[in-house]
């Protein structure tokens, strides 16, 4: 079993199975470019730095990849927008503790940076589910978004929305 070491922005090392990293487009490209797949190359001696991902977030990402080991990797970006995405129960439980906090969003950003499409899709779906059926003030309260609109602006947006109803 080939192990490849990932180094987070806070200098934490994470030895990860080569097979798991196929889910990440960014790391896969790095591995290919660094010839880490070659038998002659000592992969363990060449850690991959990930300066944009913190240690705790990277740990969560690896945890997610371990669970989804063997899942088909999504390719391309032309899938139908209207296709309904269902978040599996395990992923729902995985995202829930960090929901409404910075951790979940950091996980999403990390998924985007590491190009893990399945994680990004599910994470975004989980975030989008928190918006559904809510009013603006409810979303603001849950996500800690301050109201930046003046009453005049709110009125203008309200009128804008009336076009559709």
């Amino acid at each position: 079993m080939v192990l490849i070491t990932l180094v987070s922005s806070d200098e934490q090392n994470f030895p990860v199975e080569r097979e798991l990293l196929k889910q990440s487009g960014t790391i896969e490209t790095l591995i290919v470019n660094m010839n880490l797949d070659d038998e002659d190359t000592d992969a363990a001696a060449m850690p991959i730095p990930l300066p944009n991902v913190k240690g705790d977030v990277l740990e969560k990402v690896i945890q997610w990849m371990e669970h989804h080991k063997g899942d088909p990797v999504k390719e391309g970006d032309n899938e139908d927008n209207n296709a309904e995405i269902v978040v599996p129960q395990w992923d729902d439980d995985f995202f829930k503790p960090a929901m409404y906090g910075s951790k979940h969003l950091e996980l999403t950003v990390a998924a985007s940076y590491l190009d893990i499409k399945n994680l990004l899709t599910l994470s975004c779906k989980a975030i989008s589910n928190t918006f559904k059926g809510k009013t603006g003030p409810q979303i603001r309260e849950e996500w800690g978004v301050p109201n930046e609109f003046t009453p005049e602006e709110e009125e203008a947006i309200r009128k804008e929305n009336e076009w559709s109803e």
């Binding site: 918006f131 809510k134 009013t135 603006g136 978004v145 109201n147 947006i157 309200r158 929305n161 559709s164």
Partner: peptide, 11 residues
């Protein structure tokens, strides 16, 4: 429709 709600939250 979700977007209409979301755009009321912040700039």
């Amino acid at each position: 429709h979700h977007l209409d709600v979301l755009k009321c939250t912040s700039q």
